[in-house]
Design a protein around this nucleic acid. Structure first.
Lengths: 228, 228
DNA sequence: CCCGATCCTGACGCCTTCTTGAGGACTTGA
DNA sequence: TCAAGTCCTCAAGAAGGCGTCAGGATCGGG
């Protein structure tokens, strides 16, 4: 059985360019096309593409916003295509979560090669798990849902990010600095007090006895760990 | 335990460019430099860098050959930097195993951003399992877990660092000064009493008979050794 | 503009960990 | 046998990390 062709979400508001991209990709990939940022986000949810080809110049949303919105729930590679060639634009996009940045005009061959690189990277990743369960806790990364014994648990943004970071390293010790960087961004290094406060809140919401946690384990002097 | 700066192998035969790259990288990374392909391969083996920055125009080997040779044994990201901007060159390099391709001239900011992308990808790859076992003791460096006969053993930060240092030189004698430097940092030189106290604690937690240690061996006047 | 949710910050007590010291055992060589 | 150096053990006080709580600042939606 041959593998199905990867699915690429193509996002561009100009029809001629979409046509060019479609023609370029059609031999090796299946494509889905969106003309606006909102449409892109909706189709991405719907089709869960293997990669996204994204033009930054969209009529409704800023391209960077699309990138960061996508990044909240998917690790699929995003290749940005843009007429803007300024270095600051490239840096913003790449640091914002894009995996590559191509400046128009570019050759079809280079686009395909860079797309192959992106898909190569994605293929090496372990399948991104979307649902985690431990005890009576259930975490759905796709829908940003957390339930305990079936009951929905409301988490604030920081609490949720903290939990996700722990979940993504399930079983391993996650150092204070890594947690701080993931949740509060770089520059929060050393503010371990944040972690104490938010871990306490997470425990209050998820643990039976927050004084004797079963899952959210403290590793003194090092960090925290999610026991599976 | 703070995370060390990533190590970048910089390969370019022109000294001024190497200097430029070094200056660009020096705030965020440690660098190793090579001027030829052969040197690059040898240094890569020796240092196992987190990423490689490679100029294709080398005096001895073809740049593509360096890429494919590296790819036979390492998955570290390779960012190609080249004066050749022809599309065919880019395609060949990217399909040959490079992860990105920058055409000179390029901005320092873009280089750094693309390097961050490359390292971000590498960080998501599954880590190599690092487990050491001797007797009924099992040490998992990745999970920071220590078990004895299957039962988890709780170690304080200093105890754990001390054990890790010994494990990393398993079988060999580790001098007092090296242990002190690794665990207590520079400036603790001469405080061998620390070692006595902490070795005693380790033995109490890991050995059957701490008076007759099977693994944590004293080398009088020199240091300690982990017998395997 | 107001209100609620969320985030930051500080204070406090508890507990673990680290440091330091003292005493005794062992080894080695004179 | 003695002396000197090195090592082990035990314990107590100091230091620092952690959990908890609550007040006030800040943010965002209505």
């Amino acid at each position: 059985m041959s593998e199905p062709q990867p699915l690429i979400l193509v996002v561009d508001d100009e029809l001629p360019i979409r046509r060019f991209l479609r023609a370029t990709l059609q031999d090796d990939y299946r494509t889905v096309e969106a003309g606006t940022g909102a449409e892109a986000l909706s189709l991405a949810r719907q089709y869960n593409p293997d990669a996204v080809l994204l033009d930054l110049g969209l009529p409704d949303l800023d391209g960077l916003e699309v990138v960061s919105k996508l990044r909240t729930w998917t690790a699929a590679p995003i290749v940005v295509v843009s007429a803007r060639g300024r270095e600051a634009d490239k840096i913003a996009a790449l640091d914002g979560g894009a995996d590559d940045y191509l400046t128009k005009p570019f050759g079809a061959g280079e686009l395909l090669a860079r797309l192959r690189v992106a898909l190569r990277h994605a293929a090496r990743l372990p399948d991104a798990q979307e649902v985690f369960e431990f005890g009576d806790i259930r975490i759905d990364l796709l829908f940003r849902n957390v339930t305990r014994a079936g009951e929905p648990v409301h988490l604030t943004p920081h609490e949720y990010k903290l939990l996700v970071t722990l979940v993504q390293h399930a079983g391993k010790v996650v150092t204070h600095n890594l947690l701080l960087k993931q949740v509060w961004g770089p520059g929060a290094s050393g503010q371990t007090h944040y972690l104490r406060v938010y871990m306490a809140q997470l425990r209050a919401k998820l643990e039976v006895d927050s004084a004797r946690p079963r899952f959210l384990i403290t590793e003194p002097g090092v960090g925290y760990r999610l026991r599976t």
